[in-house]
Design a protein around this nucleic acid. Sequence first.
DNA 1: TGCCAGATTGGTAGCGCTAACAATAAAAAG
DNA 2: CTTTTTATTGTTAGCGCTACCAATCTGGCA
Lengths: 350, 350
Amino acid sequence: MARKLGRRGGNIVTIHDVARHVGVSPMTVSRVINGEKNVREETRAKVMASVEALNYSPNLAARSLATQDSARIGLLYSNPSVAFLSEFLLGILSESSQSGAQLLIESCEGPEGATVALEKMKAGGCDGVILSPPLSDSTRVAKILKDMNLPFVGVAMARPDTTVSCVTIDDFKAAKAMTRRLIELGHRRIAFIKGHPNAYASQIRYDGFLAAMAKSGLEVDDNFVGQGYFTYRSGFDAAERLLSHKDKPTAIFASNDDMAAGAVAAAHRIGLDVPDQVTVVGFDDTAMASSVWPELTTVRQPISDMAGLAVRLLLDQIRAYRMGKPFEAVREVRDFSLIERQSSAEIPEA
Amino acid sequence: MARKLGRRGGNIVTIHDVARHVGVSPMTVSRVINGEKNVREETRAKVMASVEALNYSPNLAARSLATQDSARIGLLYSNPSVAFLSEFLLGILSESSQSGAQLLIESCEGPEGATVALEKMKAGGCDGVILSPPLSDSTRVAKILKDMNLPFVGVAMARPDTTVSCVTIDDFKAAKAMTRRLIELGHRRIAFIKGHPNAYASQIRYDGFLAAMAKSGLEVDDNFVGQGYFTYRSGFDAAERLLSHKDKPTAIFASNDDMAAGAVAAAHRIGLDVPDQVTVVGFDDTAMASSVWPELTTVRQPISDMAGLAVRLLLDQIRAYRMGKPFEAVREVRDFSLIERQSSAEIPEA
DNA sequence: TGCCAGATTGGTAGCGCTAACAATAAAAAG
DNA sequence: CTTTTTATTGTTAGCGCTACCAATCTGGCA
């Protein structure tokens, strides 16, 4: 029976080829590439060498067919920052392609649209769902999923909820750290622009700011707190107000990058140089942060990693669910980092 | 032999289940779901009904294993606009998950890094590569791939090259259309900010602008053409200069959104209202366009569709390549669209 | 020396699907 | 009415991999 050739682009190296090359059974090769124990070190080395030599890489389709643990995971996102989305997708993608998971992607507008999207996923045979913010913070979406009996993992969820699995950073700590950094730079009159009142993250970031200020014995003037809505425009407006006081703040901490960019524009409008006369910092490290000028000092979440981790967690949950194990929520907290760019500087000499 | 249960999340419906339910052979079901001919209409309907009733959806792993036409496709991107990337990924993702293609993703910095990344892909068993801009425009990357004998498809390639497959829009026409629109709005003194001189798109967009101007009998003053580099800062600087002439332009066409955003900031700085006193338009419809205020009128490419199409084209090419057919380059041109937001308006009454 | 536990390896079967061919039924041709 | 063609369906085998169990080989110990 003539074997079809040229398949897999000339890379038709299978586990059998490797096995033959080494002189062991395919099963042993399988064990080695899956890192199982109970393989003699010597054998393992030989196999590894052959894998390398033949440039073998396993056929994921075959593997997931054989292991039966291929899963379909749904990705629900809803108009997050686009920059966030791309990093998010990158993380999801590389992880899920490795684990051979199938992806179903749906976007939705708010929790209402979520119902429809989730029904669609369920119908499409989804085994679990990953939620991007701000959906991950929605109690409503969480409820829908629980009712559907679908495992899910939220990414960058600010809402504290021990019954839901998620991967996040500590928004409180992050805001606190950024504030501390501003204080370190000599700033005392620090203004804060809050995010959308509906978002959990808004409150938590604000709390972090307050905590850092309190710890340094600095008081927060009500005039130095602006209400924003996570949009450029709202940041612009809030900053304009904040900067109109006779005793201007020397630094503005906006609780996301869009608002920080708006704040920079407002400062420029008034004729204030950033950062020489006002420091402006943001949060999230979206594309915005490095597109505007000066580029924004901001807080960065390891989004790609977080998304990848979310996939792994979800697959674990799906596996557990299939084995009939009881559900156990996991909360993984990742480290954030402060990215210092050109929009922040030491306090100007008075 | 006890069958493992609970697999595929309770959605263990296989083609056999459907077959049994209908009372035909699995093969017939396979034919129906693959839309093959030579199936009686009546049978087809019955199968369809069962598929619906049982909520069957095929196991892609099994399918690609059986058809042997699973492919590994590489995705090479290099720091494009993040907004572009996410749309791009979305398109790639939904298409490739449907076709069961495996994805390998690599980013690289410029054509130098491309060599390394592509070697890695080749080693990883890639059967073909998709290039995002600006890599798609690089003759160097194209050469590397040709030398490697790897099929590839470029997305949003401005460079005219009939030996390379790509999916693009007509940058010339798009720039022309936007310019025409500005003229329609009554603008006569229209300034243009060029993109990075190394990018093909820059020249082509500029040509489109010139063509539209010429067609309307408008002359282009050298003072009304600024050199930018696709960055916010360069747009800011160029606009500042353009707006400093005593006979200011009433509209500025920046050849990407970042520069347009910079131009808006420059106008604001000078105290000019956008769009009441100056119209500013961009190109690309990146996140930037709808993040700043006023939101930018711009040219939009159907990136997601284009990326999806690129995947399909690439898979076709890989298939053709495997069957030993000669390579044939395809150039698919998609329609762009003009997105009118708040940064453009009719010419102010003098 | 003989026996057994544990370590290491191999054999078999089958995951869900479809290519290729075989078989049957229906239609067309002679 | 038989033969050929064509339309429709079924059968077999195998894609590449791994779960499961059987086989073999260690060495330790009585």
